[in-house]
Design a protein around this nucleic acid. Structure first.
Lengths: 202, 202
DNA sequence: GGGTTGATTGACCCATTGGTCAACCTTGGG
DNA sequence: CCCAAGGTTGACCAATGGGTCAATCAACCC
């Protein structure tokens, strides 16, 4: 080892740039040279760490997921009561601030690419499964504590996640009839319907 | 006029082929030559009717919408009671048969392209608005008839549509945890929750 | 300070593909 | 039967952009 490796750091820079470009112009229009320019390096360097465009984008999709989960870790570590936890978790996914919007754009690109690529579909299944599992766990805890009404927790989780995905898409598309505030209301109504009609105690 | 125009017919053939290719390989990988080959003609002919690739894909997205609505016209013309009508309408959107799956694929491509193209975003707003309006109208009729519980009909419609979109995506992606049958169950639960708790009469 | 190796560069190659175009075909009218 | 005009063809052009590579640099060790 001649010097300390800069590999991890450089890779992170490149992946961050790749996500930004993906969100800006989409998978179709992503150019290796754009990513390089954004990092302030050359296309050669990008290819040095990610031999092909597919290697780069696949790694970027994975990186987007890891960062996305990382940003929400603090919510999960609070160990609030399930109602608060679920609400905070859902809230963190509303495409309001720029970071969240960018992450959503990258997710959308992943979905559509995954429709025609088995490897990406497998990646989606894995990372989407993680998100589904977290929501499912919170719902189960809420049911056990008597806060949430009964029902198949997996179905409930899938419903909530589906709702969020679908609404986010329209928000991202700039629909006049579906903006972040409307989305918040619809999600809140869904969450309210999850609460037991009669609180069990006090 | 030397002969009767074949324009409408040929355009429809080309647009049908374009939708098939879009669904098969996606917007990114759509080639004019693939569309031409599927129709059994030359790239020159495709360009004769649709000067640029963008003209072709935009028209294909619109065509997909029109066909999609057309296929459901019979449901709307039955004038069933709102509960039955809404259920039939939702059911017709489950990505089960091949035709519906292809249409969903094209929708997904539209969404992601529209994220980076204002014209396509406007197209989406228009056609998505039509779909939203239909669902909203059915819900309002159901509320007026006392079948559905009270609540902002537009929000309810947006919630249902968002749910369907989000779930469909995961079904299309071949998720093991979300197939058509599970999707049907989740949608049915949503619809059941829309019914009034105590039927108003008999 | 020389050697080793990781890291970087950007010019270049070449496959791909959207779009053009001039020639040609086909149908129907006069 | 010939002409006009819509319709069709596919070779070709030009641009684009992924990936290669030989040269170079920079950090660290001996």
């Amino acid at each position: 080892m001649a010097r300390p490796s800069v590999e991890a750091e450089r890779k992170a820079q490149i992946l961050g740039a790749a996500c930004a470009v993906l969100a800006d112009v989409g998978f179709t229009a992503l150019r290796i040279s754009d990513v390089a320019k954004r990092v302030g390096t050359s296309t050669g360097t990008v290819h040095y760490y990610f031999p092909t465009k597919r290697d780069l984008t696949t790694a970027a999709f994975e990186w987007n997921f890891e960062r996305s989960l990382e940003r929400r870790q603090h919510i999960l570590e609070l160990h609030d009561d399930p109602r608060t936890e679920l609400r905070a978790f859902v809230d963190s996914y509303l495409p309001g601030d720029e970071v969240t919007v960018q992450a959503w754009h990258v997710w959308a690109e992943l979905w559509v690419e995954a429709l025609h690529d088995d490897d990406l579909a497998a990646l989606n299944e894995r990372v989407y499964g993680a998100w589904r599992k977290i929501v499912c766990r919170i719902i189960e805890e809420g049911q056990a504590a008597g806060h949430f009404r009964a029902g198949d927790a997996l179905n409930l989780a899938n419903g909530l996640i589906g709702l969020i995905d679908g609404l986010s898409l329209q928000v991202l598309l700039g629909s006049k009839e579906m903006d972040v505030e409307r989305m918040r209301v619809v999600c809140d109504e869904w969450l309210a319907a999850l609460d037991v009609v009669e609180p069990i105690r006090s």
